[in-house]
């Protein structure tokens, strides 16, 4: 079956990460941290402990609402919470989930989050991709920056097996008071945003694109010749 879940996503919200998006946050200081991951639909919270020091071998922990983090847990706390290690300056990579998720980072012993994925900040990265061709509004709902993002219709007549299937991702930066230039990407092409100021990045489908008008006639002609 076609992965209709991913095909049905027609937008992006960095505050509620679905399967087509993820964020990266760097932990520079050594120490013990707690991460809480929330599933938006069920409000189920998963916790884990991250011990950060300069000798740890892992440079990255991939976390998501659906699965356990990747990497080997070194031990468990008294409450049965898994403990992971991370090299100072390493990254926490929060991957989106089917229902949408977000995460919060705490210094051990503190109830005040030092990072909330719903409000990205300098040093974070946000990445996403879109499949539905059409015109989108891409904006930073905190700063108000906005641009037109177009997912171009993939005209099958132009397809060629020889061509690379995946285009390199488009890389952007958020800046205070700065709008982006209009952006056109292919379906599935990645967009990576380097966050430099508080951001909630949002992409909203405004107008679908079902392809050029002559495409249907071309397909009908093929169908008459038993070609689908």
């Amino acid at each position: 079956m076609l992965n209709l879940n991913i095909f049905s996503i027609t937008g992006v919200d960095s505050a509620l990460l679905q399967n087509n998006a993820s964020v990266i946050h760097q932990i520079k200081d050594a120490g013990e941290f707690w991460i809480a991951i929330y599933n938006a639909a069920s409000q189920i919270e998963k916790r884990l402990v991250v011990q950060v020091d300069e000798q740890a071998k892992s440079f990255i922990i991939n976390i998501t609402a659906d699965d356990l983090p990747t990497g080997k847990a070194c031990c468990c706390t008294e409450n049965g919470i898994l403990v992971y290690t991370l090299r100072s300056g390493g990254f926490v990579h929060l991957k989106g989930s089917e229902d949408g998720c977000f995460a919060m980072l705490y210094k051990a012993g503190s109830e005040d989050a030092i990072w909330d994925s719903r409000k990205l900040d300098a040093g974070d990265f946000f990445a996403f991709m879109l499949l539905r061709p059409g015109k989108y509004s891409f904006s930073n709902r905190i700063s108000g920056a906005e641009c037109l993002l177009t997912v171009a219709y993939p005209d099958p007549r132009q397809n060629s097996k020889a061509e690379g299937k995946e285009a390199e991702p488009v890389r952007l930066r958020t800046e205070y008071d700065a709008n982006w230039e209009p952006l056109t990407i292919k379906p599935g092409q990645g967009v990576v945003v380097e966050v430099n100021n508080p951001s909630r990045l949002y992409c909203d489908l405004r107008e679908v694109d079902d392809g050029p008008e002559d495409l249907i006639a071309w397909k009908n002609e093929l169908k008459r010749n038993n070609i689908l």
Binding site: P154, P156, N159, A162, K165, P187, G188, G211, L222
Partner: peptide, 21 residues
């Protein structure tokens, strides 16, 4: 397996072929 035409074309763009045939 592919309910909408645009999905077919998106799939084809990844597969790198003009038609499923």
């Amino acid at each position: 397996y592919i309910p909408q035409t645009w999905m077919v074309d998106v799939v084809l763009s990844f597969l790198g072929f003009p038609t499923l045939t």
